[in-house]
């Protein structure tokens, strides 16, 4: 443990010290400004940033980001796609559900950089222009929500649930939707919405 701490400290210190050596060669006012604005910290993190190429709702994005940023935070904080919600941030509630290459995942438990080269669909990418996706329309029709916070995750999960072929009965829908928690308890209406879309009847 102690050894690991030392090596961690030394790598970061090396990055910071290299900056300080550069700063020391500068005129005093510049050096002061550098210290004030924490150039050492900023340089160290700039070196650690990782390039990311990602397609979100059909648009390609290129960024250089801190590898600690989760896919959820990247969508919300970097792309301002705030439809995807942060509930628990630990993969327990499903509010952050998005599709990556067509598969539903918890975006809070995936680093953005791990999704380099992938195609992401969020709740914002589901509708066809002004026309709602049938699942969105069904949630409205069946009152599949109360406060609405879990709804984007529920809808993304529900679309995938049908696509995976796991919506053949109410029991199966409940089992395969269990990763999306609704604290308002709109479950019966959510199941009804999914059942209707699966049945292909007009919504």
């Amino acid at each position: 443990m102690a050894k690991e701490k030392t090596s961690k400290a030394s790598r970061r210190n090396f990055l910071k010290q290299s900056t300080l050596i550069t700063v020391a060669a500068m005129a005093p006012p510049v050096a002061l400004k550098a210290a004030e604005e924490q150039w050492d910290e900023r340089l160290a993190s700039a070196i650690e940033n990782v390039p990311l190429n990602i397609e979100v709702n059909g648009s390609v994005h290129q960024a250089k980001i801190d590898p600690r940023v989760t896919l959820l935070d990247f969508l919300r904080e970097h792309l301002q796609l705030t439809g995807t919600k942060k509930g628990c941030d630990y993969g327990q509630c499903g509010a952050c559900t998005v599709h990556v290459d067509g598969q539903r995942i918890n975006s809070c438990l995936s680093l953005a950089v791990m999704n380099d080269g992938r195609k992401v669909t969020t709740i914002e990418g589901l509708a066809d222009g002004a026309e709602l996706h049938p699942m969105q329309a069904a949630f409205i029709k069946h009152d599949g929500l109360q406060c609405g916070y879990c709804t984007p995750g529920q809808i993304m999960s529900a679309v995938a649930c049908i696509r995976e072929g796991h919506a053949d009965s109410d029991e199966e829908i409940r089992e395969f939707m269990s990763g999306n928690i609704c604290r308002c308890g709109a479950y019966p209406n959510i199941v009804a919405a999914i059942r209707e879309v699966k049945g292909g009847s007009k919504v």
């Binding site: 993969g91 598969q103 539903r104 918890n106 438990l109």
Partner: peptide, 9 residues
Amino acid sequence: GASAQLRNM
């Protein structure tokens, strides 16, 4: 085990 989303990861 887990949920459909977690099993996909």
